[in-house]
Computed example of a mutant assay.
Amino acid sequence: MSATTTAYVSAPDPVRAPTLRRRLTCMLYEGVLLFGVLMASTAVYVLAQPALRQLGANSMYVAQVWSFLVMGVYFAWFWQRNGQTLAMQTWRIRLETLDGGRVRWPRAVLRFLLAWLWLPPAVAVGHALGLVKGPFVAVLVGALLIWVMLAWLDPRRQFLHDRLARTRLIDLRPPSATNAASSK
């Protein structure tokens, strides 16, 4: 091969982040799957309620912590296993470290926790304004949308929690599928 022909050999594609639209659609699908996971975990919690009552640990907050832990284990387990939850497998999105490596348990747990950073300020604003029900939910949704839109400020189009956890989401579709989808 001469020097002139080597210039035309295609170099590996740079890592492409999935579009925000694909990530949000994946998140919606993830919500459907999580509904089933949380229903099963709630059944376990209901079965454990008599024992929790005897321990004096049966409250709304214990149930919320239980659900949060179940979600954390769900996400961290899939992310450390192959970088993809079931929804991410469907949408061909994978989570990896910045150098392209597998995400291990500590980083997966850290990413899960960092993904919730938008919530405490939103709750504080809602409570400070004395909001309840619909308006309170509107503040939460607004804060979540702002959190998601921060990805547009990142040069690699990654979420803030990915930047902080030193992870990235990548698009696993072949470049031809990516180009065809973006032209629609």
Rank of each mutant, 00 (worst) to 15 (best):
A17Q: 09
M149R: 10
T97Q: 10
L55P: 02
A43N: 00
V123T: 12
R173D: 13
V109D: 00
V73T: 14
A181C: 02
W147F: 15
A3V: 10
L131P: 00
A128D: 06
T178E: 07
G130K: 08
S176M: 03
F68K: 02
D13W: 08
D154Y: 02
A17I: 12
S41D: 05
W105G: 04
L117C: 11
M60H: 06
P174T: 05
W116N: 07
V37G: 07
L114S: 05
L34R: 07
W116L: 11
D99E: 14
V132H: 09
Q64F: 08
L172M: 10
Y45P: 00
R168V: 02
L24T: 12
I93S: 01
L119D: 07
A48F: 13
P106L: 11
N179E: 09
L114T: 08
L47P: 00
W77T: 13
T6Y: 05
R104F: 09
R53Q: 11
V37K: 02
T6A: 13
K133S: 15
V123K: 02
L164N: 02
Q89G: 13
F112K: 04
V44F: 04
S67L: 08
L144C: 13
R166Y: 00
T19E: 07
W147N: 15
R102E: 03
Q49V: 11
V65S: 12
R16F: 10
A177H: 00
G130V: 13
G56V: 04
V109E: 01
P18I: 12
G134L: 15
R173V: 04
R102D: 02
A138G: 11
S182A: 12
T19W: 06
F35E: 04
F136N: 11
R22C: 09
L98C: 05
Q49T: 06
Q84Y: 15
R163S: 03
S67G: 12
G83K: 12
L131E: 04
V9A: 10
F75W: 15
A138E: 11
G36R: 03
R156P: 10
D154A: 05
A138Q: 13
A57Y: 02
A7K: 08
V109F: 01
A128H: 10
L110R: 01
A11P: 06
R21H: 01
T167S: 06
F78H: 14
Q80H: 10
A180H: 06
W77L: 14
A87L: 10
Q89A: 14
L145C: 15
F136E: 14
Q64N: 10
L55N: 05
H161R: 05
V148H: 11
A17Y: 07
W91Y: 11
A180F: 03
L113P: 00
Q158L: 12
L172P: 00
T6M: 13
P120W: 11
V109L: 08
M1L: 09
W147A: 15
G36Q: 04
F136V: 07
T97H: 03
Y74L: 14
D171V: 00
D99Q: 14
A76E: 03
Y29F: 15
M27H: 05
A87H: 08
V137E: 13
T4R: 08
V32F: 12
P175I: 06
W152P: 08
A76L: 05
P50E: 04
S176L: 08
A108E: 01
N82E: 13
V70G: 07
L34G: 09
A7F: 14
D154E: 14
D171I: 00
T85S: 15
P12C: 07
M27L: 14
T19Q: 06
L164S: 04
